[in-house]
Write a protein that binds this DNA or RNA. Structure first.
Lengths: 255, 255
DNA sequence: GTTGACCTTCACGTTGCGTCAAGCTGTACC
DNA sequence: GGTACAGCTTGACGCAACGTGAAGGTCAAC
């Protein structure tokens, strides 16, 4: 497949000016120039552009990007692996910021006090990470290990109290769900309470909760007989009922 | 607490030049100027700066930020709520990009074909979101519904082929896991293959995959008797074995 | 053959600062 | 009291990564 500037721009979601600029600074030259002087891009350029956008997303300057991708020792496959890791890092930074904004909300509600230092925690972390991308990986290895340790700590270092709480939640969910099922209405208060209990139960296991994943799991309960069997054990249809309740709860109702 | 330019800069992780520039364009004026002409910032300015950095993080221009925070109707508490939502949106975009890079890796390994369009999926989504932040919420409501539709479509609109694939994956997982269990080594190739099959199976249900959530789910299989029962049905200890394999697979090994 | 969407090359404008330069201020130590 | 030195001030120019015309050639369609 061959592309002109506009075609490629639309494909990648960038302007034609950007493509011309990338040609000008020698970061992405077209495969060839046709007889009327038009820039024509081919398959290789599509792939290079994708790489460029990955690097750009990570905040590198175009100058740095050019050095990297024009390096004869450049290994595209390894670069992709690194993109993946750095994007995951970026997500962790985002999580820090989200934690910050949530703490700030709590502090405006008077539920918590924040020091001036804490108010900028996610931002400073971000700058550290950006420096890191410029100056190497030594620090990352340190932070990477920490992240893993934290993730493990969540489940491995569960206190007996927490474990008791999980069991309690699990039992309360079963009771509530059975009662709600009698009403037949997945939007009812009882059913919504069941969905909420299910979420709270889940959050003991997941470090990253999202409504989508929650809704996905609920659907899984219905689609996979291994889980349907459990929920439907006492009352057939319970798995589907729970799914509907959760879909309403998470706002992912059917069209 | 009172701050000079450098003190505040260090606190927030920005340069003194930036603070002077923010004063110049009227986005963050110091609380007062002391007798020698020094800028002195107080508590209110610390909080405003935090807000500014949140907006900046979301990609708004300083001009837009000024309009927002100097608006007499500006509600700091509501702004925080919106920050939270938009940061969560941003995380979803990141997840798209991560999915993209993972797909790209798979395609270089020949495990998958990617259309040129797919190669830019996460990027384009990002541009849409950025436009949205500039031009208001009407579009969001449209796209928000789309996102929900997409999420639903993922499971609701599964083709028969996909459903067959799920069943196949599920069976292959059961077989592989049983074989791997014989080796006794969760790090073995077979066990790791089982973990990978499990991931692929999961990805049919989850719109947001993360190693953490995967590891969490694995732990859940062990901690919750409802799921342990299923996996241990043929061979007791299988659930724990699968958890260990997944923890190694996701890189969340024990300390 | 002419409309209209595409392409080209200048070339200047914009944002959000970085980076001197030249000079005043504040404290600390001799 | 002198002087060193870090920290503050106001210009003012520089820079990256494009946006935004202007002026003109190209191409498929009607």
């Amino acid at each position: 497949m061959e592309y002109t500037v506009q075609k490629l721009g639309q494909l990648a979601g960038i302007s034609t000016r950007t493509l011309r600029y990338y040609d000008e600074i020698g970061i992405l030259k077209p495969a060839r120039i046709n007889s009327s002087g038009y820039r024509i891009y081919g398959q290789a350029e599509v792939n290079t552009l994708q790489q460029i956008l990955f690097y750009r997303e990570l905040g590198l300057s175009l100058e740095s990007i050019r050095e990297i991708i024009t390096d004869p020792g450049f290994d595209g496959t390894r670069a992709l692996q690194e993109h993946r890791e750095q994007l995951l890092d970026k997500r962790k930074q985002l999580d820090l910021l989200i934690a910050n904004v949530e703490k700030t909300i709590a502090s405006t509600e008077g539920r918590l006090h924040m020091s001036d230092q804490e108010k900028f925690e996610g931002f400073k972390q971000k700058m550290i990470e950006e420096n890191e991308q410029k100056y190497g990986k030594e620090i990352r290895e340190k932070y990477g290990d920490d992240a893993v340790n934290k993730s493990n700590a969540k489940v491995q270092n569960m206190t007996p109290e927490q474990h008791a709480e999980i069991t309690r939640l699990s039992e309360e969910l079963a009771d509530t769900l059975a009662q709600a099922f009698q009403t037949g209405d997945p939007a009812s208060d009882l059913a919504q309470k069941a969905a909420d209990l299910h979420k709270r139960w889940l959050m003991f296991y997941w470090t990253d909760y999202s409504p989508e994943a929650h809704a996905g799991l609920a659907q899984m309960y219905v689609d996979d007989e291994r889980f349907t069997a459990h929920y439907d054990a006492k009352q057939p249809g319970t798995a589907a009922f729970l799914r509907d309740a959760i879909h309403i709860y998470t706002g992912k109702t059917k069209a």
